[in-house]
């Protein structure tokens, strides 16, 4: 799967900010995930490496090092719940459990229709509005409770039906 011309243009537009092209790697991987289904397919690695003047292994080791990059497929809506201290104190485990029940997959898995996956992540920096979750890389859903899960899932399904997976209007929940 080649990188689209638009995507390559978006990546090369970042070059002037830095003395070395390689510095654009993390940003480029964010762009790729945004535009190519939420994960970094191995197919894009050689072309990205060439664009940045580095080796494929340089890209691969970065993809595997950083938790926000997914070397395997995730759902169209990757629902990530913070399970660090402040969120667990205020019920994050119950949120994960309700998601698992609602979507009929375990944390770490993708639903059969490819629409959802559940992830557990470390502190998101929203401890005063815990528990918090993040759908893909959108704005946080804060003060979330287990009881908010069915509504959240419903809204995401509606977005999928409406064709709009992207957009920064968040998952429409929280407060």
């Amino acid at each position: 799967m080649p990188l689209s011309e638009e995507l390559k243009a978006r990546i090369t537009a970042e070059f002037p900010k830095y003395p070395e092209r390689r510095a654009v790697l993390l940003t480029a991987l964010h762009f790729i995930q945004e535009e190519c289904g939420g994960w970094v397919s191995p197919d894009v690695v050689p072309e990205l490496a060439e664009l940045l003047g580095i080796l494929p292994i340089d890209v691969e080791e970065v993809v595997s090092f950083y938790p926000m990059y997914h070397p395997d497929r995730v759902g169209r809506f990757h629902v990530q719940v913070c399970t660090n201290i402040a969120c667990c104190i205020r019920g994050a485990r119950g949120v994960v459990r309700r998601l698992e029940e609602q979507l009929d997959v375990l944390s770490g898995e993708v639903t059969e229709d490819g629409l959802f996956s559940i992830g557990e992540v470390e502190c998101l920096g929203s401890c005063g509005t815990a528990p918090v979750l993040m759908v893909n890389n959108e704005r946080f859903v804060e003060n979330v409770s287990a009881d908010d899960v069915p509504g959240l899932v419903e809204r995401l399904r509606a977005r999928a039906a409406g064709g709009g997976a992207n957009g920064s209007n968040g998952a429409g929940g929280g407060r």
Partner: peptide
């Protein structure tokens, strides 16, 4: 001023891990 995005690794808040990461490497 340029705003640069990390990718979820706590260690990149360590000053030299941050620099490695900003340069496009593991933090």
């Amino acid at each position: 001023v340029f705003v640069h995005r990390g990718a979820g690794a706590y260690i990149c808040g360590e000053e030299t891990g941050l620099m490695e990461s900003l340069e496009g490497r593991k933090g």
